[in-house]
């Protein structure tokens, strides 16, 4: 059976899925990037390979996320796509009539507006990381609450307190102030969820026409408090898909399938790459005043990829 591999290399997590031709998730994996994307991609693919039955043949590979070029050269991707398109494609698979996608991940958040299956507008957070997964993680560990319980605890709130959401520094000092005044932790957490949603709608969602169906995906979609705060703020139901944290990878796999239907072949190097030695190196190019930091990736001591320059000087390998 033909299947398609999708890899989403985010700042915080690396997600890998194998998608059937019909669009079903055969297997999926969510791993922490831990600042070591190469090792995690190799480990992840090893696990995926072991879980696949021998009949399954990878007919195409797509990569997305901020590390998409790295993953792309490592595994031999047929399509290397930005995460906005990948997320929109995945959301359309789940709900073909979707009109709004909220995606909140580790380091960034985005909104995608679709009409009749076509992306008509999108935005990403530009100037502040408030409201992204990393900030929630940080607050959860400050309060010594496992991030997995953060959302359900928020739902126990009876009268949420108001927290400033414009900036993480303001939010944190406001939270500490409220906690020292004696407010219940549940009320503070739900207050934080509301603040983050307010910030998201005002900043990322600014000027966008938010129409249902709304799909909420990305790692933060696991947080029931944020989902509930979205529904309360918008007065509309918000759907969290089953594979909410794998949507980027699902989209990448579907795009690989589309590519395969045009080309008929794949550049996939096979699961052998999980045992190949990879290493990266970097240097500063002194060709001009930009002094770009060039990163190189080696597979078995052979350069397979190079990026980081502002001109095309180092593009040829």
């Amino acid at each position: 059976m033909q299947a398609y591999l999708g890899i989403d290399i985010g700042s915080v997590s690396i997600n890998i899925v194998v998608l059937s031709g019909a669009g079903d998730v055969i297997t999926g994996l969510y791993l922490r990037t831990k600042g070591r994307p190469i090792e995690v991609i190799q480990d992840g693919l090893k696990i995926i390979h072991e879980s696949l039955t021998p009949q399954i043949k990878i007919a195409g590979v797509g990569s997305t996320g901020s590390g998409r070029y790295l993953a792309g050269v490592m595994v031999g991707a047929d399509v290397i796509k930005n995460e906005i398109t990948a997320h929109a494609v995945a959301a359309s698979m789940i709900a073909p009539d979707v009109q709004t996608v909220f995606e909140i991940g580790g380091q960034d958040s985005k909104i995608i507006i679709l009409r009749e299956g076509i992306v008509t507008d999108f935005a990403m957070n530009t100037v502040c990381a408030a409201g992204t997964g990393s900030f929630l993680d940080q607050q959860a560990s400050r309060l010594n609450i496992p991030i997995t319980q953060f959302g359900s605890l928020a739902l126990e709130s009876e009268s949420p307190v108001r927290i400033a959401g414009r900036c993480t520094v303001f939010a944190e000092s406001d939270m500490i102030h409220k906690q020292q005044m004696g407010h219940r932790i549940q009320d503070i957490i739900y207050g934080l969820c509301e603040a983050l949603v307010r910030n998201y709608l005002n900043n990322v969602g600014k000027g966008k026409e938010i129409l249902p169906p709304i799909i909420f995906q990305g790692g933060v979609a696991a947080n029931l408090g944020i989902k509930s705060a979205f529904e309360k703020a918008l007065g509309l139901p918000v759907l969290v898909p089953e594979y909410y944290n794998l949507m980027g990878a699902i989209g990448a796999a579907r795009l690989a399938q589309e590519e395969n239907s045009i080309n008929g072949t794949t550049k996939f190097k096979g699961f052998e790459i999980t045992s190949l030695p990879y290493r990266t190196g970097s240097f500063e190019c002194n060709g001009c005043s930009n002094v770009c930091e060039i990163v190189e990736i080696y597979e078995k001591e052979i350069i397979i990829g190079r990026w980081g320059s502002r001109c095309a000087k180092w593009d040829t390998i």
Partner: peptide, 25 residues
Amino acid sequence: FLDEQTGKTGMTTRLEAFTDLMRRK
């Protein structure tokens, strides 16, 4: 909105997505 950031990844991602959007349209 431009400021002192020199990392180009964020801009490239948005430009690629914008190009996809315009092409599909």
